[in-house]
Amino acid sequence: MIVQLKKGMLELLVLSLLKDEDRYGYELVEEISKYIDISEGTIYPLLRRIRTEGYVEAYLKESNNGPSRKYYKITDLGSRAYEDQLEQWTSFKEDIDSLLRRNNNE
């Protein structure tokens, strides 16, 4: 179950990280891996999909050492999607918690 759950949450996590600043794929993976264990390669299909949906834009920027890196920048549409998904997640989490803890309250 946890694998599917992680896969579903990845979009919200990526949008959340991009809210702060533009980042490249490797950076996103690195940041997320600090908190949860994910199959890192799945980030790129996800980035591709949210780019198609118009949530993020990509641009190439040269790094200090070596070739240019592909940076991702959140769009207005992406910011709105983030707020929306965050709210959905928060209320979902509360619902699940109250269901699971129903016996404690009795």
């Binding site: 891996s33 199959s39 890192e40 390669g41 799945t42 996800l46 999909r49 198609t52």
Partner: peptide
């Protein structure tokens, strides 16, 4: 750490299908 290339390819194919 990247995980199975097959799984990744499948996700790209799913994206295009969608």
């Amino acid at each position: 750490e990247l995980g199975s290339p097959e799984t990744i390819a499948k996700q790209f194919l799913e994206n295009e299908g969608r």
